[in-house]
Design a protein around this nucleic acid. Structure first.
Lengths: 175, 175
DNA sequence: GTCTCACTATACAGGTCTGTCTAGTACGAT
DNA sequence: ATCGTACTAGACAGACCTGTATAGTGAGAC
């Protein structure tokens, strides 16, 4: 519900009705809605990290990125697609909320994955470019309701990778 | 306030207190909060379109994109920066709201600007890639609180432009 | 002067929100 | 059998939300 309808639009009463539990039970397991949001994001993060680990077993960086964006494109084509849960949540939660720390961890994992694929440091501009690709792909695909945004971003990501391999030193920000 | 704190987090009472007007006055000028949100986005859209028109007077597409992203980078460096107001709003308003139509108009204008710069059709994959750059740049810059995301996106945008000029036919989605 | 119009301030209705509390129930361990 | 634990249903508090209604004020048109 948090993902589909948004966090603020989803009240606790609807959550417990959907889960089929009593309100006291929910508050026995989560101290507050903020904690529940953080747990919701953490569940997403766990699945995401597991998928990244699978992709890390591939030896070819081109295929890693290709499969990564292919997975995104598949998600973007589904009826339940509603963008990146972390980017969406970042708009709705406050920066000092526990959920925001999960969001930051997500972006750390994402940058780490891209850095490994590129053989670069996490703060390399090319890594940032790939993060921009990811974020823009899902945001645009959501708002425009057009999964082809993800395909366009995938092609862009591959061009970043090939540019990086052609001249692996400082390929970036001041061109 | 809608921009800084988010739309759902900003109640009508705070709006009228900040504007120094009575509630009845606000509701004389705007039928509902939804209409107020749409007007808020429309004001942003007007300024944005005006800036795009200025940029369209430049003959060199490279400079158009460079100045466009330089403006974004300037915004991203300001303390009040909070991402793209349209992308943020898209997370908080419902798809059938009047605000959402303004958001769609914004993306139409954005794609039009990129299409003119590239000399391409608005549905060209390269145009979509530039939209992805824009969206990703502002989203990542906001969440990571790092304006360098915009600089990375700017470099990426220029590479899309040069790739397009090197081989102007079908540069995109299936690479 | 008088009418009109837009404003101000404020109370209020009706709803939703989060979070707490009470009261009762099922179940396993000892 | 009794205790502890976790659950259920649901009332409730207190705050906030949007939107409306009431009552009064000031300025310009004629």
């Amino acid at each position: 519900m948090f993902y589909r309808d948004g966090i603020n639009a989803t009240g606790i009463d609807r959550v417990i009705a959907g889960a089929g539990v009593a309100k006291a039970s929910l508050y026995n397991n989560f101290a507050s809605k903020d904690e529940l949001i953080a747990a919701y994001l953490e569940a997403h993060l766990d699945r995401f990290v597991a998928r990244l680990c699978e992709l890390d077993t591939l030896t070819d960086p081109v295929e890693r990125l290709a499969r990564f964006f292919a997975g995104l494109a598949r998600s973007a084509g589904e009826a339940t697609f509603s963008g990146c849960p972390f980017a969406n949540a970042a708009v709705e939660v406050r920066p000092d909320s526990p959920a925001h720390r999960v969001i930051e961890r997500f972006y750390g994992e994402l940058a780490g994955f891209f850095a490994r694929a590129l053989g670069a440091a996490p703060d390399d501009p090319a890594v940032t470019q790939l993060v921009v690709c990811y974020d823009g792909a899902l945001s645009a695909a959501r708002i425009l309701r057009d999964p082809s945004c993800v395909a366009a971003a995938a092609a862009l990501a591959q061009s970043i990778l090939t540019a990086r391999r052609a001249r692996p030193v400082a390929p970036g920000a001041t061109n």
